[in-house]
Amino acid sequence: MIETENLTKVFDDFLAVDRVTLRVNPGEVLAVLGPNGAGKTTTVRMLTSILAPTSGRAVVAGFDVVKQPEQVRAHVGVLTEQHGLYERMKGLEYLDFFGEVYRVPKQTRRERATNLMKRFGLEDAMHRRVGDYSKGMKQKLALVRALLHNPPVLLLDEPTSAMDPLSAKQVRDAIIELQRDERTFLITTHNLAEAQQLANQIAIIRHGRIIALGTFDELAQQFGGETIVEMRVDGTLNGAAKDFADLITVVDQTEDALYFRTPSPRQTNPDVLARAVGLGLRVVTLSQKKQSLEDIYLQVVKEDETHDRHHQP
């Protein structure tokens, strides 16, 4: 489990992380999104007990990041933004070194390293120098390193950024499998589709501050605004949009589709459908346009920027 309360980090005069409060339960994935320099990496570093918070507190895997830093690090698997591998070592040798550092017994670490390398398709590269690995392979090796000591909490910075689609899917599948195993994940990513797929909770961070936190549905409800509905017809609309003006707010239209906003589709849609039939339109589909995390993210950031502009001295 990860729990933070007003976690803050100040570098000299720069406020990098500003009163971050969050909670991730076992078996949950929290995706942290935000522009570059928003404070994501600093937050991860504090949760790994690499950097000490200036104020606030954080408990990771049951250990306080300030009072029990070594226990925290022993129970956390970290995939850093820069994988930072030892390029002159061989894959298996590299993992053996980290296994020893994490005090995993020799036999266990050998077995685990071999199994995990196979799991991520690195079996042919076990005895090759890491320097000869491709970028994606290096990322997978770094991920294997993070999993090697079987940590209950995983902090993954851009876990699939350098991977091809197949490898990325392998990693996502592994995360889902580990999630079922009651592991706690905090993933920082710019891949919004991946975040939407994996995360139970999403946090959007900007200028070190969490500006949105919740499940996708909660964020969609909070920031997505009114529902947008698409009505697609057989043939052309022939300027019929004006005939719906008293019922709905049309936001867009194409030759054969009308997009409208409504606060209550349940009440509006039957009326719209009846009107369309009355106008002789042959309605093919009437469907709610799904909002993506990208829409929500952009909306959240835009709102925060507007808020900043209005509150600038």
Partner: peptide
Amino acid sequence: GEKERRSLEPLLSTPLS
């Protein structure tokens, strides 16, 4: 050198004091 190659951070993330 390790700091520059960013290989220090994984090491700093371990339980070593």
